[in-house]
Simulated scan of single mutants.
Amino acid sequence: MAMLVGAAQLGAALAGWLVVQLGRTDEYGRPSFAPLGLLCVFVFGPPLLLFLGAVHTALMTMPSDLAAQALARRAKGALWQWRCAAPVVIGAAYAAALAAAGAPFLYCWAGISASAALPLLCVAWFRRREERRGRPYSRGEVWFRVLPAGLLLTVAVTVACGVALGTGAIGDYTPPRPAKEAMAGVWASEDGPAELLLREDGVAVLTAMPYDGWDREGSCDGTGTWSYAAGAVEFDVAGEYCRVGTWTVGGSAERPELYALFGDPDAGDVRILVQQAAR
Protein backbone atom coordinates (compact mmCIF):
# COMPACT_ATOMS: atom_id res chain seq x y z
CA MET A 1 0.00 0.00 0.00
CA ALA A 2 2.80 2.43 0.85
CA MET A 3 4.43 1.64 -2.49
CA LEU A 4 1.22 2.49 -4.36
CA VAL A 5 0.68 5.71 -2.42
CA GLY A 6 4.29 6.74 -2.97
CA ALA A 7 3.95 6.04 -6.69
CA ALA A 8 0.65 7.96 -6.79
CA GLN A 9 2.07 11.09 -5.20
CA LEU A 10 5.11 10.96 -7.47
CA GLY A 11 2.78 10.55 -10.45
CA ALA A 12 0.74 13.57 -9.36
CA ALA A 13 3.90 15.64 -8.99
CA LEU A 14 5.08 14.50 -12.43
CA ALA A 15 1.71 15.39 -13.99
CA GLY A 16 1.79 18.86 -12.47
CA TRP A 17 5.37 19.40 -13.64
CA LEU A 18 4.46 18.30 -17.17
CA VAL A 19 1.53 20.73 -17.30
CA VAL A 20 3.80 23.60 -16.29
CA GLN A 21 6.54 22.61 -18.74
CA LEU A 22 4.16 22.08 -21.66
CA GLY A 23 2.48 25.40 -20.96
CA ARG A 24 5.61 27.44 -21.56
CA THR A 25 8.72 27.48 -23.71
CA ASP A 26 12.36 27.81 -22.82
CA GLU A 27 14.21 31.11 -23.00
CA TYR A 28 14.89 30.56 -26.71
CA GLY A 29 11.27 29.93 -27.71
CA ARG A 30 11.53 26.16 -28.01
CA PRO A 31 8.94 23.83 -26.44
CA SER A 32 10.13 22.01 -23.35
CA PHE A 33 9.20 18.55 -24.66
CA ALA A 34 9.38 16.84 -28.01
CA PRO A 35 6.57 14.38 -28.90
CA LEU A 36 8.97 11.44 -28.53
CA GLY A 37 9.84 12.56 -25.00
CA LEU A 38 6.16 12.66 -24.04
CA LEU A 39 5.64 9.18 -25.50
CA CYS A 40 8.51 7.88 -23.37
CA VAL A 41 6.96 9.44 -20.28
CA PHE A 42 3.61 7.72 -20.88
CA VAL A 43 5.17 4.34 -21.77
CA PHE A 44 7.92 4.08 -19.19
CA GLY A 45 6.41 6.34 -16.53
CA PRO A 46 4.02 3.88 -14.78
CA PRO A 47 6.54 1.07 -14.14
CA LEU A 48 9.19 3.60 -13.15
CA LEU A 49 6.78 5.23 -10.69
CA LEU A 50 6.02 1.86 -9.10
CA PHE A 51 9.75 1.16 -8.77
CA LEU A 52 10.36 4.57 -7.21
CA GLY A 53 7.39 4.02 -4.89
CA ALA A 54 8.98 0.78 -3.71
CA VAL A 55 12.33 2.52 -3.20
CA HIS A 56 10.64 5.32 -1.25
CA THR A 57 8.85 2.77 0.92
CA ALA A 58 12.06 0.91 1.70
CA LEU A 59 14.11 4.02 2.42
CA MET A 60 11.56 6.35 4.00
CA THR A 61 8.06 5.08 4.82
CA MET A 62 8.99 1.72 6.33
CA PRO A 63 11.87 3.01 8.51
CA SER A 64 9.71 5.90 9.72
CA ASP A 65 6.80 3.63 10.61
CA LEU A 66 8.97 1.03 12.36
CA ALA A 67 10.86 3.70 14.29
CA ALA A 68 7.60 5.37 15.36
CA GLN A 69 6.13 2.08 16.63
CA ALA A 70 9.31 1.23 18.52
CA LEU A 71 9.47 4.65 20.16
CA ALA A 72 5.78 4.58 21.05
CA ARG A 73 6.31 1.30 22.92
CA ARG A 74 9.42 2.47 24.81
CA ALA A 75 8.88 6.19 25.35
CA LYS A 76 6.12 8.60 26.22
CA GLY A 77 3.95 10.07 23.53
CA ALA A 78 1.23 8.90 21.19
CA LEU A 79 2.02 6.87 18.10
CA TRP A 80 0.89 9.66 15.80
CA GLN A 81 3.37 12.03 17.41
CA TRP A 82 6.25 9.68 16.74
CA ARG A 83 4.98 9.18 13.18
CA CYS A 84 5.34 12.93 12.72
CA ALA A 85 8.80 13.07 14.28
CA ALA A 86 10.39 10.00 12.69
CA PRO A 87 10.34 11.15 9.04
CA VAL A 88 11.70 14.55 10.07
CA VAL A 89 14.73 12.93 11.71
CA ILE A 90 15.27 10.41 8.91
CA GLY A 91 14.75 13.12 6.30
CA ALA A 92 17.44 15.24 7.95
CA ALA A 93 19.93 12.39 7.58
CA TYR A 94 19.18 11.99 3.86
CA ALA A 95 19.20 15.77 3.35
CA ALA A 96 22.61 16.01 5.01
CA ALA A 97 23.98 13.46 2.54
CA LEU A 98 22.55 15.44 -0.39
CA ALA A 99 23.85 18.70 1.07
CA ALA A 100 27.35 17.20 1.12
CA ALA A 101 26.98 16.78 -2.64
CA GLY A 102 26.01 20.44 -3.05
CA ALA A 103 22.21 20.41 -2.77
CA PRO A 104 20.41 22.96 -0.52
CA PHE A 105 19.85 21.32 2.86
CA LEU A 106 16.60 23.00 3.93
CA TYR A 107 14.77 22.34 0.66
CA CYS A 108 15.90 18.72 0.61
CA TRP A 109 14.99 18.25 4.25
CA ALA A 110 11.51 19.71 3.79
CA GLY A 111 10.82 17.76 0.60
CA ILE A 112 12.06 14.40 1.86
CA SER A 113 10.26 14.71 5.20
CA ALA A 114 6.99 15.79 3.56
CA SER A 115 7.14 12.92 1.08
CA ALA A 116 6.49 10.44 3.89
CA ALA A 117 3.38 12.20 5.24
CA LEU A 118 0.78 10.80 2.82
CA PRO A 119 2.08 7.19 2.81
CA LEU A 120 2.22 7.13 6.63
CA LEU A 121 -1.30 8.57 6.90
CA CYS A 122 -2.60 5.91 4.53
CA VAL A 123 -0.79 3.14 6.41
CA ALA A 124 -2.40 4.29 9.65
CA TRP A 125 -5.83 4.56 8.02
CA PHE A 126 -5.63 1.04 6.54
CA ARG A 127 -4.53 -0.42 9.85
CA ARG A 128 -7.44 1.15 11.71
CA ARG A 129 -9.85 -0.14 9.07
CA GLU A 130 -8.35 -3.63 9.32
CA GLU A 131 -8.76 -3.60 13.12
CA ARG A 132 -12.43 -2.67 12.78
CA ARG A 133 -13.20 -5.29 10.16
CA GLY A 134 -11.12 -7.97 11.92
CA ARG A 135 -9.14 -9.09 8.87
CA PRO A 136 -6.47 -7.57 6.63
CA TYR A 137 -7.11 -6.17 3.19
CA SER A 138 -6.13 -8.30 0.25
CA ARG A 139 -3.72 -6.98 -2.34
CA GLY A 140 -6.54 -6.48 -4.82
CA GLU A 141 -8.56 -4.49 -2.29
CA VAL A 142 -5.58 -2.23 -1.64
CA TRP A 143 -5.12 -1.59 -5.37
CA PHE A 144 -8.85 -0.95 -5.77
CA ARG A 145 -8.79 1.73 -3.08
CA VAL A 146 -5.46 3.41 -3.73
CA LEU A 147 -5.49 3.72 -7.53
CA PRO A 148 -8.75 5.76 -7.80
CA ALA A 149 -7.54 8.03 -5.00
CA GLY A 150 -4.22 8.45 -6.81
CA LEU A 151 -6.06 9.30 -10.03
CA LEU A 152 -8.12 11.95 -8.23
CA LEU A 153 -4.96 13.39 -6.70
CA THR A 154 -3.30 13.55 -10.11
CA VAL A 155 -6.31 15.29 -11.65
CA ALA A 156 -6.46 17.79 -8.78
CA VAL A 157 -2.75 18.63 -9.07
CA THR A 158 -2.99 18.90 -12.86
CA VAL A 159 -5.95 21.29 -12.68
CA ALA A 160 -4.27 23.36 -9.96
CA CYS A 161 -1.06 23.70 -11.98
CA GLY A 162 -3.04 24.58 -15.10
CA VAL A 163 -4.93 27.30 -13.24
CA ALA A 164 -1.73 28.64 -11.69
CA LEU A 165 -0.07 28.73 -15.11
CA GLY A 166 -3.06 30.38 -16.75
CA THR A 167 -3.39 33.08 -14.09
CA GLY A 168 0.32 33.85 -14.03
CA ALA A 169 0.87 32.60 -10.48
CA ILE A 170 3.63 30.38 -11.90
CA GLY A 171 5.90 32.78 -13.70
CA ASP A 172 7.39 32.24 -17.12
CA TYR A 173 10.67 33.49 -18.53
CA THR A 174 10.53 37.18 -19.45
CA PRO A 175 13.25 38.36 -21.82
CA PRO A 176 14.86 41.76 -21.30
CA ARG A 177 13.62 44.71 -23.33
CA PRO A 178 16.55 47.14 -23.59
CA ALA A 179 16.23 50.48 -25.35
CA LYS A 180 17.54 50.77 -28.90
CA GLU A 181 20.47 52.87 -27.70
CA ALA A 182 21.56 50.02 -25.42
CA MET A 183 21.69 47.61 -28.37
CA ALA A 184 24.59 49.44 -30.00
CA GLY A 185 27.90 47.76 -29.42
CA VAL A 186 29.83 44.59 -30.14
CA TRP A 187 28.09 41.20 -29.95
CA ALA A 188 30.21 38.08 -30.20
CA SER A 189 29.78 34.33 -30.06
CA GLU A 190 31.37 32.46 -27.16
CA ASP A 191 31.64 29.30 -29.27
CA GLY A 192 33.03 30.59 -32.54
CA PRO A 193 34.42 33.50 -34.56
CA ALA A 194 31.07 35.22 -35.19
CA GLU A 195 31.04 38.92 -34.30
CA LEU A 196 28.54 41.67 -34.88
CA LEU A 197 28.98 45.43 -34.56
CA LEU A 198 25.80 47.48 -34.23
CA ARG A 199 26.52 51.16 -34.65
CA GLU A 200 24.29 53.90 -33.32
CA ASP A 201 23.79 55.30 -36.82
CA GLY A 202 22.04 52.08 -37.87
CA VAL A 203 24.99 50.44 -39.63
CA ALA A 204 25.71 46.75 -38.93
CA VAL A 205 29.13 45.20 -39.56
CA LEU A 206 29.08 41.39 -39.70
CA THR A 207 32.05 39.07 -39.27
CA ALA A 208 31.52 35.30 -39.77
CA MET A 209 27.85 35.89 -38.99
CA PRO A 210 25.88 32.61 -39.10
CA TYR A 211 22.72 32.30 -41.19
CA ASP A 212 20.29 29.50 -41.97
CA GLY A 213 20.10 28.92 -45.72
CA TRP A 214 17.64 26.77 -47.64
CA ASP A 215 20.08 23.91 -48.09
CA ARG A 216 22.72 24.45 -45.40
CA GLU A 217 23.89 26.64 -42.58
CA GLY A 218 26.54 29.14 -43.51
CA SER A 219 28.32 32.28 -42.37
CA CYS A 220 29.16 35.52 -44.08
CA ASP A 221 30.94 38.85 -43.74
CA GLY A 222 29.29 42.05 -44.79
CA THR A 223 27.90 45.46 -44.02
CA GLY A 224 24.27 46.48 -43.87
CA THR A 225 21.70 48.17 -41.70
CA TRP A 226 19.83 47.11 -38.59
CA SER A 227 16.54 48.05 -36.98
CA TYR A 228 15.17 47.20 -33.55
CA ALA A 229 11.57 46.66 -32.53
CA ALA A 230 9.55 44.35 -30.27
CA GLY A 231 12.63 42.77 -28.75
CA ALA A 232 14.19 41.71 -32.07
CA VAL A 233 16.88 43.02 -34.37
CA GLU A 234 16.24 42.82 -38.11
CA PHE A 235 19.10 43.02 -40.57
CA ASP A 236 19.23 44.18 -44.16
CA VAL A 237 22.59 43.05 -45.52
CA ALA A 238 23.75 43.38 -49.11
CA GLY A 239 24.59 40.10 -50.75
CA GLU A 240 22.60 37.21 -52.12
CA TYR A 241 24.03 34.64 -49.72
CA CYS A 242 23.98 36.64 -46.49
CA ARG A 243 20.42 35.98 -45.32
CA VAL A 244 20.93 36.92 -41.68
CA GLY A 245 17.29 37.81 -41.12
CA THR A 246 16.01 38.55 -37.61
CA TRP A 247 17.68 37.85 -34.27
CA THR A 248 15.79 37.97 -30.97
CA VAL A 249 16.87 39.54 -27.70
CA GLY A 250 17.27 37.03 -24.86
CA GLY A 251 19.40 36.36 -21.83
CA SER A 252 18.99 38.73 -18.90
CA ALA A 253 19.27 42.44 -18.22
CA GLU A 254 22.75 41.85 -16.79
CA ARG A 255 23.85 39.63 -19.71
CA PRO A 256 21.79 40.40 -22.84
CA GLU A 257 21.97 38.04 -25.80
CA LEU A 258 20.96 37.96 -29.43
CA TYR A 259 19.89 34.54 -30.65
CA ALA A 260 18.47 32.82 -33.70
CA LEU A 261 17.00 29.33 -33.97
CA PHE A 262 18.32 27.24 -36.84
CA GLY A 263 16.65 24.07 -38.09
CA ASP A 264 13.59 22.39 -36.57
CA PRO A 265 11.56 24.90 -34.48
CA ASP A 266 10.79 22.14 -31.96
CA ALA A 267 14.37 21.01 -31.43
CA GLY A 268 16.61 23.26 -33.44
CA ASP A 269 20.07 24.59 -32.72
CA VAL A 270 20.43 28.02 -31.16
CA ARG A 271 23.14 30.45 -32.23
CA ILE A 272 23.89 33.05 -29.54
CA LEU A 273 25.75 36.33 -29.55
CA VAL A 274 26.56 38.02 -26.23
CA GLN A 275 27.01 41.75 -25.90
CA GLN A 276 30.65 42.56 -25.24
CA ALA A 277 30.92 46.33 -25.07
CA ALA A 278 28.81 49.35 -25.96
CA ARG A 279 30.01 51.82 -28.55
Rank of each mutant, 00 (worst) to 15 (best):
G6W: 05
A8T: 07
G11C: 12
L14W: 01
D26T: 07
E27V: 04
F33T: 03
L36C: 04
L36E: 08
V43Q: 02
P47C: 00
L52M: 14
A54W: 13
T57I: 06
A58T: 04
A67Q: 01
R73E: 10
A75W: 14
A75C: 14
A78L: 01
A78R: 01
A78W: 05
L79C: 12
W80A: 00
W82Q: 00
A85I: 03
V88A: 07
V89A: 05
Y94N: 14
W109Y: 00
A114C: 10
S115I: 00
S115N: 01
A116N: 05
L118P: 02
L118E: 01
R133Y: 13
R133T: 11
R135D: 08
V142A: 03
W143N: 04
P148S: 11
L153S: 02
T158E: 00
T158S: 02
A164Q: 05
L165T: 11
G168A: 03
T174F: 01
A179Y: 12
K180V: 12
A184H: 13
A188P: 09
S189C: 12
G192F: 02
A194C: 09
L196E: 11
G202T: 00
V203L: 11
A208F: 11
M209I: 08
M209L: 14
P210M: 06
R216C: 15
R216V: 12
G224T: 08
T225A: 12
A230C: 10
V233I: 05
V233W: 00
C242D: 06
T248D: 12
E254S: 15
P256I: 13
F262T: 09
D266M: 15
R271A: 13
V274F: 11
V274T: 15
Q276A: 02
A278R: 13
